[in-house]
Amino acid sequence: MGEDGSGRTPELTTERARTAGPRQAWAGLPWPVQTAVTWSACLVVVVTGLWLLGKIAVLLAPLAIALAGTLFLTALLDPVLLLLRRLRVPAAPAALLTILLLLGVLVGVGALVWNLTASQFGELSQQLDQGVERSRDFVTSTLPVTEAQLDRLIQQARQGLSGGAPDPIRGARTAAEVAGSLLFALVLLFFLLKDGRSMWRWVLRRMTGPNRAVTAEAGRVGWRTLGSYSRGTMMIAAIDATGIGLALVVLRVPLALPLALITFLGGFVPIIGATVAGAVAVLVALAANGPTTALLTLAAVIAVQQIEGNLLEPLIMKRQVQLHPAVILIVVTAGTLIAGIAGAFVSVPIAAVTWRVIDTVQRHRSPAPA
């Protein structure tokens, strides 16, 4: 093997020359071109990853929704389980008693509401139809829209809804999937309440080095965020339902209890749920008592929601859930498109927990400031 005058072998010189060509060509490009190529490659990788995650989420939507709902209930019921454990109740009976308490509350509240409002839901539908008719008259009298054009738009919307309605076979299959998901969620809820902490400790014991501390901190922050969101959302929804329900009673709007129940359920879907529930209440007030009562109902709904958004939510949620309203709208819309109403319910807590975990890991891995 010979060497050139610099003491390097010809093979080494040839290899370096071969690798130096692309580097010199890349270095010779203008910096805007280098930046555009780099960001385009990163964008392609990110979009491909998001597309794959979306396909997986659509395929596993029932499992993902059941798992997310189970984690939501676990975080909500965790204080009850801890109270039973402090009273020296073993893990398995404590988890079973917690689930039975949940089922008892749901069945009791559902039976009470049904007995009080079952005869009023038919009237609620009629009141909504009358409210829509009055709104239609208001639109045609104040806006440059004729009755024929408005009827055509309404007919197109109805055709779209009826065209998207599932057939009986698909409906039966969906009902079977829902029943299976509920059974799966109850069984998984029992095991998470019974062995959730021991499972987490098992995961941490399998990690070594600094990853254990980062994972433990991220897990604590994520679990705290989910618990704060679940309990805070329930409290805020109950306060909204109580406030709007009292306003409807004072204004003598009929069907106050069903409307309060709709408001409570809508509180679990941020922004969109409150808007829809408030619109239903205003329509019923318009149909029952006229535009003056409808305007007063609208003012009451806005006042309650402003108090909830500016005072109660920061006080109850504190700083555990930090998502911009625009992000919440996007997340709720994406969850609805993927899994319907169930996706709308669980999309925000998933996004909040994911953001808090990523933020915690990022802060741990970032170098300390000088």
Rank of each mutant, 00 (worst) to 15 (best):
R16E: 06
T19G: 09
T19M: 05
G21R: 01
P22E: 08
W31G: 04
P32F: 12
T48G: 14
T48R: 15
K55W: 08
A57S: 13
A57I: 01
V58Q: 08
A68F: 07
F72Q: 15
L73F: 08
L76D: 04
P79I: 12
L82E: 14
A91R: 07
L96Y: 02
I99M: 00
L101W: 02
L102T: 07
N115D: 10
L124C: 05
D129N: 09
D137T: 13
V139K: 06
T142M: 10
S162W: 03
G164P: 02
G164S: 13
A165Y: 14
P168F: 12
R173V: 07
A175W: 15
F184Q: 08
L186H: 08
S198M: 06
R224D: 15
I239C: 11
T242S: 11
G243S: 09
G243E: 08
L248C: 03
L251G: 00
P258S: 03
G267M: 09
A277G: 00
T292G: 13
T293L: 13
L296G: 00
L315D: 01
M317K: 03
M317H: 05
H324E: 12
V331H: 01
V331M: 09
A334L: 12
S347P: 08
T360A: 12
T360L: 10
R363P: 06
